[in-house]
Design a protein around this nucleic acid. Structure first.
Lengths: 235, 235
DNA sequence: TATAATTTGTCCGTATGTATA
DNA sequence: TTATACATACGGACAAATTAT
């Protein structure tokens, strides 16, 4: 059973993306949305709250809820975590698998993934190519106690989609540390750049709702094409 | 009159930082917090919701609200925008003013700041030094129609603090685009790095609650010392 | 300029669902 | 299985900011 506020949010987002509100650059008022969706004011407010956090709208007290036009070409919105397959669904996304191994956590990985040394892991290296341009070189570790099975098809498409296709495994938290550093020789080669070029690096931990850390990954982005977008609002 | 949920949130944050919950790594239950703060359940939930978004706690249904220990030393938490003066209040923060001019918006700046060409602006260049290490070289443009006055003391301390000291001027939104690029010669010199070294760059727009874009800035960070932290949770 | 209407923001109490212990 | 604790949802009331009269 999907929560009502999520249904409303999805519907509003779809309408917004389809340009339904482009004429007046405003959403209907809360009272109108209550009528449209036949839910309580709280539920409406919760739905639009998420949209406001994602930077899609800007509610102004006494005035209305206005569309924002910050929509980014080619920016990765940090408020919307959905894996690359979804982020670039309107682009041609290729994935080159460089490594796909079953390993066991060493001290460093065990610490990063908050588990015992020797915990079984999948280790991946992949290059993501968007519209023919190398976008990202990814190192991934996945805890096999939580993700027991993967195959070549899954990792060539979307690990994220595969995991969330199990309704019991709901992603709860994703932490990212964003840094810049120099590309290694290997990374440069994979991204068609030069060794020592700048890299925009995102080091990620993904956890399930109950807190189990199942995924640790280092994403080394092409600095020429990748931008992160962070939208904040202060209620 | 400050909102109750903000009061509760501030109190809980202070308690958490002071280590009040360190023994069991949990917050009191919602019902206990209702008793403690004498407010409704909604108000409690709203307060802890903000804390969860900031990555301080992890609420787990059926179990409790657990402390998270992600508080990475020296990371700039992207969920908490408060200017550097506040972020580094426990560090020695120096500011070197390189430029402080009154100018008028050219086409490029007018576009970025969504205003007319010729709009009066303050233009700043500053180096921020944390504990003796150059942390960030900042270019800032401030719309003088919204920020009519600044002086050397204000810009050496905190423009942000000065602006928000006026209770009528409440910051509503901050958009950031995060990229990596090479340092220019000037930037490298200011940061005690080498020309061509990587830079972690944040390009920011800050808006008041009613949407006026008052500040545009480009922050070029020292890639050796600066990390951004982005914490997400998926309710 | 002042007032009323509109619209979002805050807060309360209650009921029921769902995941965990 | 039962109790605990967070999640969702409803409806009502009033406050605050903006817009229209």
């Amino acid at each position: 059973m999907t929560a009502k506020y999520k249904v409303v949010e999805a519907a509003l987002e779809r309408d917004l993306i389809e340009g339904k509100f482009d004429d007046i650059r405003k959403l209907p008022t809360e009272d109108e949305l209550i009528e449209i969706y036949k839910v309580s004011r709280n539920t409406i407010r919760r739905a639009v709250d998420v949209m406001a956090r994602r930077g899609m709208i800007m509610p102004i007290q006494g005035s209305g809820m206005f569309l924002r036009d910050v929509f980014q070409e080619g920016c990765v919105n940090l408020e919307v975590f959905r894996g690359m397959t979804d982020t670039f669904k309107n682009n041609r996304l290729e994935t080159k698998v460089i490594a796909f191994d079953q390993i066991f956590a060493n001290e460093e990985i065990a610490k990063a993934m908050r588990c015992e040394i020797g915990t079984p892991m999948f280790y991946l290296e992949r290059v993501r190519i968007v519209d023919g341009i190398p976008n990202c070189f990814e190192y991934s570790w996945l805890n096999r106690n939580y993700i027991p099975y993967l195959n070549n098809e899954i990792i060539t498409n979307s690990v994220y989609e595969f995991i969330t296709s199990d309704p019991k495994k709901k992603i709860g938290y994703v932490d990212r540390v964003i840094t810049a550093r120099r590309l290694t020789e290997k990374e440069a080669k994979m991204l068609s750049l030069k060794e020592g070029d700048p890299a925009l690096v995102s080091t990620n931990c993904a956890m399930f709702k109950a807190g189990e850390l199942f995924d640790y990954s280092i994403n080394v982005h092409n600095f020429e094409t990748v931008k992160f977008l962070k939208l904040s609002n202060f209620a």
